[in-house]
Amino acid sequence: MESKKYIDDLTEIKSLMNKSSRFMSLSGLSGILAGIYALIASFIAYKSVSGLAILIALGEPEEQGLFGFISSLLGDYANPLTNRLFLTLVITLLLAIVTGFFFTARKAKKTGEPLWDNSSKRLLRNFAFPLIAGGLFTLVLFQYGIIGLIAPATLIFYGLALVNASKFTLGDIKYLGVANVVLGLTATQFIGYGLYFWALGFGVFHIIYGARMYFKYDRD
């Protein structure tokens, strides 16, 4: 009878640890790198905007290859500028994800935390949901050619995803999330300057956050 109680105790301990544990191996370094990618991407986008705006004014040439494929994705609103911005966005996102995964896997290995368990799955689920919704919404903005709201929308949805995920990992990412949401909302009032806000949110904020995390958790 006594041992039944202790078995129950152990089960309870296990389930509570599982329910309340957070995935702690997020890497600060990958935050810094993601920020740097975003700054580079912003610069490329800036160059594209200033360069291709003239092209569009002169009448758009038919796009070939990869840009042609994106053109077909974007439908009626495709033009050399939206195509190039779209491609830049996607490549930056992919690079950031791959880098994030690589450094997080490395850190998890170092700290002995399993990379793929309940806590990391829960984190990913909660992060992905607002992000996927935001991604689809951004595609719709591309579809209708509402380019001016793309930077604010990506910032807002990304911020919400971070706030949502913060309960399941290092609590600090909540602040990055709130900062991005506020920045995104602010950006809606400055249409045409989206790129600067984007560079600030995805670039500078990430670098600041990543550095903070790096010095707080990683370095030792």
């Binding site: 105790d9 509570l16 309340s20």
Partner: peptide, 17 residues
């Protein structure tokens, strides 16, 4: 005690709660 056991379980895997 169930509650005390629970408190400790949570605090073992979290910095704070």
């Amino acid at each position: 005690h169930r509650i005390r056991l629970g408190i400790m379980s949570v605090l073992m895997v979290n910095e704070s709660a």
